[in-house]
Write a protein that binds this DNA or RNA. Structure first.
Length: 574
RNA sequence: CGGGCUGUGGCGCAGUUUGGUAGCGCACCUGUUUUGGGAACAGGGGGUCCUGAGUUCAAAUCUCAGCAGCCCGACCA
């Protein structure tokens, strides 16, 4: 039965905010009795929470099925061998929870399933006639996140829908990719969420093209660049601004000069000390990329986009150098590193904008000294390449229409990738084409964070009183609050409850022996779209009181045709 | 992994400075009265004070080590 009595439901609500939580969705899910933590980033889903998760799952399932995808369920426990085969046992390394069985064979808990899919199909798919396919599952994923946080927004264990397309060629992949793009749009729209699609970096998944589906919210961990004039939209990790370079630059006439800059370790310090603008300074950022030292140069007023640096280097791991490494590896010192007379072992890469600069300030690679009048060609170490390495900021020009870019934050709820043949080649998942030649299967992979979507929905739909569920994913559509202690009220509530159930409207009956205030507050906290209050006050006129959670709008319902009125309202509100 | 904060009944906290054997609010149990926005009164149950070692006649409190949680930075649905 799609309904319930609160007196028998397990919904431990909290009056006060838990101290561990500090964003809306985390606090409210704990307070509404939806989730409880077992460990950092590991949660139990209580009846109310799980019901909402299932609402989202079902929408996802329906739309995936409609798209022609086939639901499967793969092992959560995966062997080390398939990961070694694809080469990701090291790449994904620390992100995986690894363990061994009694025979000392190594396993991990699946953080994703490209390897398993490839393994599963490679012995079965032999011919181009067997393709294409789209296989998906809804399953718990485990990732040993560096820093789990924000409740279900970044958990170590979470529910994900992941799909994998298999095609003979890139045209097929493009087609299935587009189908998934459209399917994802419908899914989030059906969930009642406002999402934006952005171009994305494909990160550890590899592959060529990818898009992310983002719920716009201030608490989002991703920064997104949107053009205000055209439809350009990209994750800042991947966004690139249009830059007009002025390369006419004259040579620097003055000699390179070392100056004393005691304690000036940051660009800000230098601006104050030298009274020069930060645009005349070059920031040198020291990194270790898979063990190799790299220095990235960007203009003093810019921020480095580490993802771009990492991608250019093709590095698996990129991290800032530790202070002691500055001396040992770079032949420099933290806070005063610069591309002049730097150790030749260090690779130097610069942002495009560096090219047009001259007569700049850089670190002198010794404590409390900088160089001024630095000429890029004359004085600096060899620069391996000039690339767009700077982070895009609000006000930059759109790369497509040169309009203005704005930056917003968002929560990534879906991500689609064109993987290509990365996994099929490494794992030997091939088919025979119509010439009898062996070809790698062309793959795509498509994820939706189910539990994250639930959290994102709350981030987007709450007020000071609690959650405001969009109707399609609301755990129940109506909550009935009988107030006072009269048999008439109880009977009317019971009758309405039965009628609503018969009409197929998911309804909660708050039959707890609680005071009015408790019932009102819990109803608001758990965010049920329609609240029907039954009390002797209005019942004597054969009326029920109705309130819409989202707007707070109140009205009276006639006892006689209450069901019709409720059905009509539910079809209208969001 | 680096930096910061915090661990005291289920939840939120005080007590730690100055060591003396644990307290408040909520929740919970019993009873009475209440009953339209988180009731009142009376009685009651529940705590390895994160763990371990140390100092001391005596440790929630002091020392050391460890663990866990949260927040700020690199990963991702």
């Amino acid at each position: 039965m799609n309904s319930m009595r609160l007196s028998k439901y397990y919904m431990p609500t909290l009056k006060e905010d838990p101290t561990d939580a500090d964003i809306a969705s985390h606090k409210l899910m704990l307070r509404a009795g939806m989730i409880r933590a077992l460990s950092s980033g590991v949660y139990s889903y209580l009846p109310l929470g799980y019901r909402i998760i299932r609402k989202v799952e079902n929408i996802v399932r329906e739309e995936m099925d409609k798209s022609g995808a086939l639901e499967i369920l793969m092992p959560a426990m995966q062997t080390a061998e398939i990961w070694q085969e694809s080469g990701r046992w090291e790449d994904f390394g620390p992100l995986m929870i690894k363990f061994e069985d009694r025979k000392k064979r190594q396993y991990c808990l699946g953080p994703t399933h490209e390897e398993v899919v490839a393994d599963m199909i490679r012995d079965e798919i032999r011919s181009y006639k067997d393709l294409p396919y789209n296989l998906y599952q809804i399953q718990t994923k485990v990732r040993d996140e560096i820093r789990p946080r924000f409740g279900l927004l970044r958990a170590r264990e979470f529910i994900m829908k992941d799909a994998y397309t298999l095609d003979t060629d890139y045209e097929g992949l493009d087609e299935q990719y587009q189908v998934m793009y459209d399917t994802y749009s419908s899914i989030f729209e059906r969930c009642g969420l406002e999402t934006r699609v952005v171009r994305a970096d494909s990160g550890a998944m590899g592959g060529s093209s990818s898009h992310e589906f983002m719920v716009l919210a201030d608490t989002g961990e991703d920064e997104l660049a949107f053009c205000s004039s055209c439809d350009y939209a990209a994750n800042v990790e991947r966004a690139e601004a249009f830059i007009e370079l002025d390369e006419s630059g004259e040579k620097v006439k003055s000699d390179l000069k070392e100056i004393h800059t005691p304690g000036a370790k940051t660009i800000e310090d230098l601006v104050d000390m030298l009274e020069l603008p930060d645009t005349k300074m070059v920031k040198s950022m020291a990194y270790i990329a898979d063990g190799e030292p790299v220095v990235a140069l960007i203009r003093g007023d810019d921020q480095l986009n580490e993802v771009k640096l990492k991608n250019y280097l093709g590095a698996v791991e990129l991290r800032p150098a530790h202070p002691e490494e500055f001396e040992e590896i770079f032949g420099s010192i933290a806070g005063f590193i610069g591309p002049v007379n730097l150790s030749d072992d260090v690779k130097v890469i610069a942002d495009r904008k560096i090219k047009e600069l001259n007569g700049v300030v850089t670190g002198a690679n010794k404590k409390d000294y900088h160089y001024i009048n630095v000429d890029i060609e004359r004085d600096m170490n060899e620069i391996e390449d000039y690339l767009p390495l700077r982070k895009v900021i609000a006000g930059d020009k759109c790369p497509e229409c040169h309009g203005g870019l704005e930056i917003k934050s968002g929560i990534e709820v879906g991500h689609i990738f064109k993987l290509g043949t990365k996994y099929s080649e490494s794992m030997n998942a091939t088919y025979l084409d119509d010439n009898g030649r062996e070809q790698p299967i062309v793959m795509g992979s498509y994820g939706i964070g189910i539990t994250r979507t639930v959290a994102a929905a709350i981030e987007q739909n709450h007020d000071e009183k609690g959650i405001v569920w969009p109707v399609p994913i609301a755990p129940y559509k109506v909550i009935i609050l009988p107030l006072g202690n009269s048999d008439d009220v109880d009977e009317a509530a019971e009758n309405l409850y039965t009628e609503l159930n018969e009409a197929g409207i998911e309804t909660i009956l708050d039959d707890r022996d609680e005071r009015a205030g408790v019932k009102f507050n819990d109803a608001e906290l758990i965010g049920i779209p329609l609240r029907i209050t039954i009390g002797s006050r209005s019942l004597k006129d054969d009326k029920f009181e109705l309130q819409i959670r989202r707007t707070g709008e109140e009205s009276m319902l006639d006892k006689e045709n209450a069901i019709d009125q409720i059905e009509e309202l539910l079809s209208k509100i969001t």
